[in-house]
Amino acid sequence: MRHARILFDGRELDITIDGQDRITTSEGEQLDVSLDSDQITWLPPVKEPGTIFALGINYADHATELAFEPPKEPLVFIKHANTLTGHKQVSYRPDNIDYQHYECELVAVIGKSGKNIKREDALDYVAGYTVCNDFAIRDYLENYYRPNLRVKSRDSLLPMGPWIVDTADIPDANALKLTTTVNGKLTQDGSTKDMIFDVPFIIEYLSKIMTLNPGDMICTGTPHGIVDCQPGDTIVCSIEDVCSLETRMVSEQEYYGDNY
């Protein structure tokens, strides 16, 4: 089963989507609308977002691409809900920068509180999986708590969704094809099998430090194949059996409007 949050017909709805793509609301109402309809506005799929953990250089080939040694322990940074946006929404490119790239990532959504969780029990704490695009602006990188908040905590730069797939429906989260297209052209073609630290490892690691809570999210990093994105570009991040996340890039001025 898949779970999402949408705006439809003026209402904010928690929905489930079955194997035949039929939509049912949490009230039990069936919606007569197809998943690709423009009548649906997709919201970020986690209803009460908690702490968002993201991993840097968690694929060996991406580490090489960035001229880093693969890490000996996870490189984790934190993000908050201001960065979230949904499927088919916009993300912005700041003015006067040279290099902003997408990062297609598998996301594990925590469903149960826990501390000191063992690897072998870790998936009991995962409600499901979704896809995110953890955009980065390389111009803003500084070597202080890198990747710093100016790079990774900007509004709208973590599209997520469109839905969460139940953990039970993904028998092996480390055997999924992961691709990104920009304006229809394939730019990233990898597999979650190349992750350095997998979801159970990361859960064991983080939960030795702190309590994980429902609504926390773990974005697991991206493989090789990043390219610069410009306003007007349409970026689609896809992970096999999970979902495809579409994002349109806009300028800073278009995004902030009157606040620009």
Partner: peptide, 13 residues
Amino acid sequence: PTQPVLYYKPRNT
């Protein structure tokens, strides 16, 4: 550093 050096204390803290 040329910018403020920032970190979060997340909700579990």
